[in-house]
Amino acid sequence: MAETAAPAPAPTPSGPARRRRRLAPFVALPVGLVLVGFVVVLARGKPAVDRIIASPLLGKPAPALQGTTIDGAPFSLANQKGTWVVVNFFAPWCTGCRQEQPDLVTFSQRHQTARDAELVGVIFNDTAANVRSFRQSEGGGWPMVIDPSGATAVDFGVSALPETFVIDPNGYVQARFSSPVTADGLDRVIDDLRNGVDPSKR
């Protein structure tokens, strides 16, 4: 009967291999900790809101904004002179627009009685029917102007939604937001502008 050969003993790792094996946990641990840190920071981070950015329009007369609202009423920005106007470019398909809608409702309600600030929405690449349905579910009683060819969005230099512009009572563009806005953020910017403070320097 043939004897089965005894298994060969496992080769012992040589010097450099042993050193690498000992070093591995010390490399893997910091890398793992950094990765966990990234995940924690990203998970706890608040989405960017009230981000003010530059615009070639700042300090210049606002571009003409006139058209028909989703309710069929005529609208002209020129008729709003004498009050602060917040022009919000939005669309129902835009996640950031859905996020900011409750704050816009709050802002609108806050200024409803005093009428010291008006809100106007400009529809960006969507239909009046979709916006009516959006308003029904999300709220919003302010004028929402149809911009069928996107000409108003081009005039304001709108790159990506949501974008919001603050127009002073003389009709000059004073601030541009390129993120969802909050009611408090809008009020703070308007207060700053009233007091002659540059809101982008805060």
Binding site: P56, F124, N125, S149, G150, A151, V154, A160
Partner: peptide
Amino acid sequence: PAALNLRDFIATEVGKGTSDADVRAAIESR
């Protein structure tokens, strides 16, 4: 969407007879 708007804007301006340079300048200003 922003590109679609700009294509419409370019088509409108070209239809109006605006020169290429003026259309480009108008876009760059915005």
